[in-house]
Design a protein around this nucleic acid. Structure first.
Lengths: 338, 338
DNA sequence: CCTGTTTCTACAACCTGTTGTATATTATTG
DNA sequence: CAATAATATACAACAGGTTGTAGAAACAGG
């Protein structure tokens, strides 16, 4: 059989549009990309042909020709902990929304931190948590790939980071408790191998020190963010011979669990214990007592990361920015003066 | 300025590999794609050149040349409810994992159901919930795009669906309660504009009817899956003059809230009320009383959807499959004989 | 009306692979 | 060893766009 003539596929191409509108493909390309000058008369004809033929330029041809890709990869390690909370979901939602606004394609990499990323055809990368996959980040940077790290503040690399001021937020939370007259303030940490949890602990310590209150290690309960760990920490807390009058809990989900334990033990919140959480999880609104917490602007952080990445992709040189988003307190009813 | 010679970008291409190994680009292509026959001697030389030059073929050129794309789009409506639960997260995780296994690129579309999808350069689509975006699905089908619908059973379209047997699972749950001797069984529904919630309600009704128990509409509490709605349903349930002895709740998150309300009102689970949830949310394990529930194989459903889509992409003709995954009961301690 | 500009448009090279077909090489067989 | 078959490789067309450059059309001023 002789080689098929041409256009074996049914896809309509720029050539068809050119024929239909009686101009060259160059002109059609100009109209599509809104570059150069095209006579109004022709522009209209081409636009009509595009509409009539329902022409959609092939992204592959475009990317091949220009060498540019509007594909953004979001890398989330397949690390279990990431999926404990709504964090990943909020992140994905925020990133996804902003990608749509900026006309970027969002490629999701739920990845084992050890296997190297391929990143073929990707124009930029957002790394969500740099726990085990720092090598992947360094690798991408070495390839001059525009990168943004979200929810982790990297000091020692020339890379853009968007994180939340966890230490500052924690400090505010504890200051608030101190202002209410509390001196015995406990802390239930998150998984302190993660930067946010470590920073919250750091903020807790700093606030106490600045207020001249000695840090008591027996008031610090380390957990892995899980509900079960929060429960046992709460039990220890209540059963302590010298119980704290207030507690700063590293996540709302855990704070709610502490409140549940309190109810079971017949304790009253906030009379017997003042509680401040962290995250501003919507669940904190329900229940008999609204949870005072530190609002974490997750969606904003996610959106900012895409904006920053888009900026980097637009630029052609390296340039990095470190952005720390403030975490503001949301006062509800779970604390009272001591 | 004269037109720059060639190879203006720094990217190494198949041509460089061909030169380095002293063969034609055809041969290199053969080696890359493992098709046709290549002399062992040359194969080794090419492989070495690829390794030395760190050559990675351009996906765009490949896709342009072959007309095939290994990009799979996952479409999730930006509908708030989707983000209430871990459902979206589990879905994304399952789909993402299987995409990695099958070497597919996962493109995420968090989309407004009204705006048409572009789907440029996409090889197949997974639609997650067809609540408002049925038009998008029909549109994709009309373009002969391989499609799979997940978590929704579409009867009237020739499209593959992977859903969970919500009605069957609900029926089992209610049967279990009946076997324990309960006759007054209430139901707290989810958002019945969603198919899973509607099917769970259907299963609840069917089980009662099959067991010769009259369905009491005042025992059916409709909610939107939210924690607040569950709370008020639970309050009504407990304060009813003729309270039910058991309740089937459409989600674990809500069932946990019902348990919390019970504790607050001084009621005992399972002595005063038997509860069955739905989902098998990991949170159901914590707390003083383990929640008996219906396990929803979300991850499996997500993974199956990718497999099915991959099958469809491989095929070149239309072909659809309807898969209903069973939902099995997980018996814990929240129910007792009546 | 002619010439110098300015504005448009077309040609063709190029981006980087894939693949049908023809040719060259090697192996098999009589 | 010649003839045929099988294997390996190269050539060049092709996928569907973008874009530098040169030439055509439109417009201005004299």
């Amino acid at each position: 059989m002789t080689r098929t003539k041409k256009n074996p596929s049914q896809v309509i191409s720029i050539v068809d549009v050119a024929k239909a509108s009686g101009v060259s493909i160059t002109t059609v390309s100009r109209v599509i990309n809104k570059i150069g000058t095209v006579k109004e008369f022709n522009r209209v004809k081409v636009a009509k042909a595009i509409r009539d033929l329902k022409f959609q330029p092939s992204v592959f041809a475009q990317r091949l020709a220009t060498g540019k890709s509007n594909v953004v990869a979001l890398v989330i390690p397949r690390y279990e902990g990431v999926f404990y909370s709504f964090y990943a979901l909020e992140l994905i939602r925020g990133v996804g929304t902003m990608c749509e606004v900026l006309k970027l394609d969002l490629l999701l990499h739920i990845t084992d931190a050890r296997t190297p990323l391929s990143l073929r055809g990707v124009g930029g990368v957002i790394f969500s948590d740099i726990i085990g996959n720092r090598a992947q980040l360094e690798d991408a940077l070495a390839k001059n790939m525009p990168c943004v790290v979200v929810n982790y503040y990297v000091n020692d690399l020339d890379v853009s980071c968007i994180a939340i001021d966890n230490a500052g937020g924690a400090e505010n939370a504890v200051n608030y408790l101190v202002e209410l007259g509390h001196r015995k303030i406990a802390h239930i940490t998150g998984d302190i191998t993660t930067q946010p949890a470590a920073k919250r602990l750091e903020g807790y310590r700093r606030a106490l020190e600045k207020n001249g209150i000695k840090v008591r290690e027996d008031y610090i309960f380390q957990t892995d963010y899980s509900r079960g760990a929060a429960r046992s920490a709460a039990e220890k807390l209540f059963k302590s011979p010298d119980p704290a009058s207030a507690v700063f809990v590293a996540s709302d989900a855990m704070a709610l669990e502490v409140m549940a334990v309190a109810r079971e033990l017949g304790k009253n919140i906030p009379d017997d214990l003042s509680i401040v959480g962290f995250d501003d999880n919507p669940s904190g609104l329900y229940g008999p007592v609204g949870l005072t917490t530190v609002r974490q602007p997750l969606i904003k952080m996610a959106e900012e990361s895409v904006k920053e990445l888009n900026r980097l992709i637009g630029l052609n040189k390296k340039s990095s920015k470190k952005i720390l988003l403030p975490a503001e307190m949301v006062i509800r009813e779970s604390c009272k003066p001591h």
